[in-house]
Design a binder for these strands. Structure first.
Lengths: 324, 324
DNA sequence: TTGAAAGCGATACCAG
DNA sequence: CTGGTATCGCTTTCAA
């Protein structure tokens, strides 16, 4: 690999000068500049990013920590983050934490040791302290770590209210809820939204709510249980699309027709929701945009650019399809 | 951030000594070692990976270049690669090439500049020359770049033969094929497998094959076209699951019942295939294992360990579900 | 068994 | 406008 020294020697100048033309910084005479550029071309020289990083204490890399890239929500998010990062000159290191506290901390440590410029993270367990100790810009996505930290979330409660009302307007008399994991902020918010709409209904009882743990398999079981306990249920709001799909599968197995006998609505708007038969009605989040926004925000933070806003609550939208 | 110098100063030794205990290399007296370890603990010192990388010309990072992480096949692959890489002490930089030659080359360049230890890539356009010029270990996955290069693929042709025969055994009299993109090796191989089984059939004509471009939307259209041209078709082999799902959707829209009137079989075994209703019969590839194997192989290559084999053809398996 | 010092490949300050 | 050089943080001879 040719280094800056080689280029300098070939061009007959000092490394300082080569560095100047490389970074287009400081004065360089017209024809020395040309000599250098010629030498660069000839050797097809590419600066060593690691050496640069060592000096700059930045590696033009950002870390992305998600629970599991296999979750379609995070897949799309990752794609958006990577697209935007590349566009702005950064690479992204992918980290799957499985929501595990220790793994998260381990990733945080090595990312820091690698001089990443910033980190995008989706975590329930991370504390504000942990993040501040890092001394690296962090933006939290999908889940808030602390009010003070840069965060991008969506209108979870509002979306849940929309979903539940929608079911009512469609004529559902008894609406059940498959909730997400306990302790996960967005699961709680969606739960609250549902509750707000139905809590004053005379029929309502806590047993209309079951935990699906944001997992399809769990949701199938939870739905089966829910439906056997309350056969009168004619509408289900699931806290995410995966669970909604699970609910539809359970209904299918029990011989309950969707949407004729049972309406199902989800939350997220993952691609999968359009692929199902029947296609899933859902509260769609602007997932790709979440990723883009978090990345541009992170990069502004990293580059110390003036920043308008560090807490975004993105709007959600109800998309009606065939399952309701 | 505390550096090796700080640790040395606190422990009252030289940086060389600290380095020795850090890497457990060379002689270190028992009690100096203890002093150093104490200092490390106290300061919770973590070596700077970038400085290390500069010296070693390796960054403990591997690059993963895939066309698009949103394709479920690559999502699962990425997860496997990241899992195994982490287990062995490496991070992974994620790159989405969209199958674009220039993007691929750009990623290759910056990965090299970042001193990645190795690269896993899935590409149709990359040439053996490009890879050799890199001077970085590369393993090609899902698609062969050249016979000489480390590669992991699956039994595409055999799988296609299995799928087509299976349809015949299920009683299908006219079998159509939704093929993958032209010029993509695995699409061609699957096409050949199909052809091998049906080419001597009296009814067979080239028009029983349409191009779905490995895309769901394309497949929907292609299937509709195929079915209107040859309404007698009672079985479809799609070159991947996404397209098989597209075919089922098209059938659904045309009012053709799957599997009663039309049997559909896919290829890949993505998670999605189990989620569909009806669940998709498919040729499953050991996707996760592909990722694991490619990673361990790459790392063996990187670490110059003796390596048994550099060209794997993994077995596929027919999993019968409800769509046939 | 330990330390001094020469890199690794770039950047940026300070002279000239 | 250009060059010399210290520096980033770590590893590895080479001597002592």
């Amino acid at each position: 690999m040719t280094s800056i020294k080689d280029v300098a020697r070939i061009a007959g100048v000092s490394v300082a000068t080569v560095s100047r033309v490389l970074n287009d910084k400081g004065y360089v005479g017209q024809n020395t500049r040309e000599k250098v550029e010629k030498a660069i071309k000839e050797t097809s020289y590419k600066p060593n990013e690691v050496a640069r990083s060592l000096f700059k204490k930045q590696s033009n890399t950002i870390g992305l920590i998600v629970p599991d890239i296999m979750n379609p929500f995070f897949t799309e998010l990752a794609r958006a983050v990577e697209d935007m990062a590349t566009k702005l000159g950064y690479n992204v290191i992918l980290c799957n934490s499985d929501g595990d506290k220790d793994k998260e901390q381990a990733y945080l440590d090595v990312l820091k040791q690698k001089y990443v410029n910033g980190i995008i993270v989706s975590s329930n367990t991370l504390t504000a302290l942990q993040v501040e100790e890092l001394n690296v810009p962090v933006v939290s996505i999908d889940r808030e770590i602390s009010k003070g930290l840069p965060t991008i979330v969506v209108e979870n409660k509002k979306g849940a209210v929309m979903a539940t009302r929608f079911l009512q307007n469609k004529g559902c008399r008894r609406i059940g809820h498959i909730r997400g994991s306990y302790g996960v902020a967005n699961a709680e918010e969606r739960y609250e939204g549902y509750k707000e709409v139905v809590s004053k209904e005379p029929w309502f009882r806590e047993s209309f709510i079951v935990n699906g743990d944001f997992d399809m398999q769990f949701s199938i079981e939870a739905t089966a249980e829910l439906l056997s306990l309350h056969p009168e249920i004619d509408g289900i709001f699931a806290a995410n699309d995966i669970m909604a799909i699970g609910a539809m599968k359970a209904a299918y197995r029990l011989g309950r027709k969707v949407p004729e006998e049972l309406a199902v609505i989800g939350f997220d708007g993952i691609k999968l929701s359009e692929v199902m038969t029947p296609e899933l009605t859902t509260i769609v989040q602007p997932i790709y945009q979440l990723g883009e926004t978090s990345t541009t925000m992170l990069i502004s933070l990293m580059e110390q650019q003036p920043i308008e806003q560090t807490y975004y609550t993105m709007a959600v939208e109800l998309v009606e399809r065939k399952s309701t």
